[in-house]
């Protein structure tokens, strides 16, 4: 075979392989974002709330836990807040309702208190003064929402603001797969 033909055949093989990869690869279509933590034990989190109550994630095993990384000046955080309030109110009526926590990201306690006083939301707000919780979960930008199952495994990561019904739908799916 002539070198020119060999070269053309090689280029054709590479092109076909490239197109095949594009065809068979599945794009991100769901609300869940990728993370190496999905399906893994959640990182150990020990901190305090902005009201100085102790918090240890290991002690919450047996409950579904939702972490919402938040900053009071972040526009998407403000936009999703009413959806979160509705979600938490609905969950409070369930026997196996989630335990919902705000993780304060690069914000002052007083600013967070003012926000929640003005906008409702009586769940605990966790301090993350040195950003170690954000780093442990790989959170670079807020808002982000994470769901941890009663066995302590990370089950879902949602990037950006959630809209009405998304968390309810995701929890229903997770509960059906968990069998609770």
């Amino acid at each position: 075979m002539k070198p020119a033909k060999v070269g053309a055949a090689a280029v054709a093989v590479v092109l076909v392989a490239f197109i095949a990869v594009l065809v068979v690869s599945d794009g991100d279509t769901g609300v869940g974002a990728r993370s190496p933590l999905l399906g893994q034990p959640a990182p150990a989190i020990v901190t305090t709330t902005i009201d100085d109550a102790p918090f240890d994630l290991a002690r919450r095993k047996g409950s579904w836990v939702v972490f919402n990384f938040f900053n009071s000046t972040c526009v998407p955080c403000i936009a999703e807040h009413s959806s979160l309030v509705r979600f938490v109110a609905d969950e409070a009526e369930r026997v196996d309702g989630v335990e919902f926590f705000t993780v304060v990201n690069d914000d002052a306690d007083d600013a967070v208190r003012s926000f929640f006083t003005a906008n409702d939301g009586k769940w605990p707000k966790l301090r993350d003064d040195d950003g170690s919780i954000a780093v442990a979960f790989g959170v670079a930008k807020v808002p982000e929402t994470w769901i941890i199952d009663p066995n302590g495994f990370v089950r879902l990561r949602i990037l950006g603001a959630v809209v009405d019904g998304v968390l309810e739908e995701q929890m229903a799916q997770l509960r059906s797969t968990q069998g609770s």
């Binding site: 190496p36 933590l37 999905l38 399906g39 034990p41 150990a44 290991a58 009663p150 302590g152």
Partner: peptide, 20 residues
């Protein structure tokens, strides 16, 4: 391949709860 979580007590505890 599973994301680099060490076989720590946290991992063993999570596995134990899952098996429980």
């Amino acid at each position: 391949p599973t994301g680099g979580i060490e076989d720590s007590t946290a991992s063993l505890l999570a596995q134990a709860r899952f098996s429980g």
